[in-house]
Design a protein around this nucleic acid. Sequence first.
DNA 1: CGAGGTCTTGAAGACGATCAACAAACGTGG
DNA 2: CCACGTTTGTTGATCGTCTTCAAGACCTCG
Lengths: 242, 242
Amino acid sequence: MLSPSERLARKLEQYDVLSAEERGVLDAIVGPEQEVAANVDIVVQGSRPGYSVLLLEGFCGRYTLLPDGDRQITALHISGDFVDLHSFLVKRLDHAVATMSHCRIAEVQHRELRAVTEKQPHLARLLWLTTLTDAAIHREWLVALGARTAPSRLAHFVCETYLRLTLVDRARDNRFDLPMTQNDLGDTLGLTAVHVNRTLQDLRGRGLLAWHGGTVEILDWHALAKFGQFDATYLSYGQEPR
Amino acid sequence: MLSPSERLARKLEQYDVLSAEERGVLDAIVGPEQEVAANVDIVVQGSRPGYSVLLLEGFCGRYTLLPDGDRQITALHISGDFVDLHSFLVKRLDHAVATMSHCRIAEVQHRELRAVTEKQPHLARLLWLTTLTDAAIHREWLVALGARTAPSRLAHFVCETYLRLTLVDRARDNRFDLPMTQNDLGDTLGLTAVHVNRTLQDLRGRGLLAWHGGTVEILDWHALAKFGQFDATYLSYGQEPR
DNA sequence: CGAGGTCTTGAAGACGATCAACAAACGTGG
DNA sequence: CCACGTTTGTTGATCGTCTTCAAGACCTCG
């Protein structure tokens, strides 16, 4: 099993090669592993934390709570993701992050991140890039919410999630576990739970996927990707000098 | 009138104080001013530019074009914004940026941005923060598209745009110019132009705003902000050490 | 075994889309 | 400066997607 800092190193190596020194720096700044139960807020809306949270294992959702009680999930985080790296510079958080499954996390103090920007510009650029990739995913979700139908939106979400999970060895052979209820999915896709249910039936009826007991199975990747207009360019994967 | 680098300095000073040296660096890296007509693509989808574009004056929209011809605008850019700072690290762009009015722009070479991350960590952090603010706006739009009705969504958009414009002296006294057609607004808010028209009438009928000939007038800021559930926290304005 | 969450189904209703037509505003050239 | 064509704005009627409300089945876990 990977150590906390190795998990982060693997994530950054999706984008560029790391030196031994850089790996050492990561090892020095990532805090000890912690266990967190499912459905716990690990980042609180409106707070000013002194550290950022690295997700080592499990699933988390960033969400905004509206005055009328509605919840919009704006990001899904998986193993290796910094769930609130932006709190380092943004200071006051406009949203919360909750675990959606049992999770393992580690903290990185903001003063350490600051030191990285002072002494490890290449690492800093890679960390910056992870936040840019988050933003690219946001844009893709905006396109989905603004311009795609419910079935296409769901198909796109499944493709994106599968691909992200494969890169951290949490999905393969067109299958992956996803601990989200249909209600969670609705809050993500801007639909009601009832309509998510019917949309799933639609995709099942088209022979595109199966989904039972927290396990998603993609029956026809090519068709699903086409149906969801999925193009992975926006995820920026691939090592190159950054 | 501000010089190109001064315009950028003003933008960054929304977040923290700049030193004279930092201003000098900005002055050295920002290219000469260029004029661009309205409705011109200044960033091309799928390209790998060697520089990022700083918008000095005018309005631009980031947009994604779908296979079926639909267009989703994912960001509105105004004076002082870097419209594609992320291309510095993302390399291949998943979207395009077009002018929506006559604009003045300046280029900054990626090698200069890289040098900033090597030698000017504080400046680099502020540039990073501008991309984080972009992401925060994306999240807010996600909330709007996923969880708000058309009138509330439009109200929120007007509040956000007004506030951003005031900070660069392009709006005041509850009025501002916005060169967007109802079709553009529809592509931004995930609505048809027809429905944008009716939604505008709804807001006018509520006495919240007036909108004629490219000029928006907010008749009741407090009521509009409440109606659109607008809370400016996510824009991160305010100088503090970053 | 019971309780609460989750999934599923049905029926009715609302919000926004679509289609179509016309009016108003704008820019361009004569 | 007016004529004209094109873009933008406006209105009406109809349609479809998704919501809402309600109820029942299933499932998991104490």
